[in-house]
């Protein structure tokens, strides 16, 4: 039989298997119990074994139901991908020691995500995903502390860089319009409780 590899399916199967194995490893902490009196580990063990099995099946079938290759990664894609992970982790570890604010709650996570995605955004292959994710991460970081308007404005302006046809005028317009609209809906009408302006 001629092999006709489906790269997408093979990658999917491997992801399923990897998550299942990680889950099984973590599940070692939980007692299984008996079929009658199931412990906290019983269901996870069942689920992850089934998932691992299905992952293996997907990999097996992927050998013949192709071809459907993965999209090609350029050198820059690989570089920024790895660079993004390294930079993100580094920022996550270092940020709290630079400014105490970054050490509060989940702020370090936000910093790490934003830095990592900005590094990834350098390569064209990641640009859209990375900029959108970075804008949402910055929103998480800023919304509570820098306030409603600054948090949202950052989200809107950064996310606009994902779309090359945006003009300066357009960005200013859409930012102003959305700030006004969301103020009306969420603050004036729904009255969600957030700070409007930075808190010090």
């Amino acid at each position: 039989m001629k092999l006709n590899v489906n790269g997408k399916d093979m990658a999917s199967g491997l992801i399923l298997m990897a998550i299942a194995l990680a889950g099984l490893y973590l599940n070692l902490d939980h007692s299984l119990g008996t079929a009658r009196r199931m412990g906290p580990g019983y269901m996870p063990a069942m689920v992850f074994w089934i998932q691992a099995g299905l992952g293996a099946l997907v990999v097996f079938f992927s050998l013949m139901n192709g071809p459907d290759p993965l999209e090609r990664w350029t050198g820059l894609d690989i570089g920024t991908f790895l660079g993004g992970i390294v930079a993100g982790l580094a920022a996550f570890w270092i940020a709290p020691s630079i400014w105490g604010f970054f050490g509060q709650t989940y702020n370090a996570v936000g910093v790490g995500l934003a830095v990592g995605f900005f590094v990834m955004a350098i390569s064209a292959g990641w640009k859209m995903l990375a900029i959108i994710c970075a804008s949402v991460s910055l929103f998480g970081l800023l919304f509570e502390h820098a306030g409603f308007f600054i948090g949202l404005a950052t989200l809107i302006i950064v996310s606009c860089f994902a779309e090359p046809t945006h003009t300066k005028k357009g960005i200013v317009g859409v930012t102003a319009f959305l700030l006004a609209l969301s103020w009306w809906v969420f603050i004036y009408e729904l009255d969600i409780r957030v700070n409007l302006w930075p808190q010090f």
Partner: peptide, 17 residues
């Protein structure tokens, strides 16, 4: 290009709240 920032705004505020 105007629609997607709006979706993002509503998603983000919804998730946060």
């Amino acid at each position: 290009r105007f629609l997607y920032p709006s979706i993002l705004v509503f998603c983000c505020i919804g998730v946060y709240s």
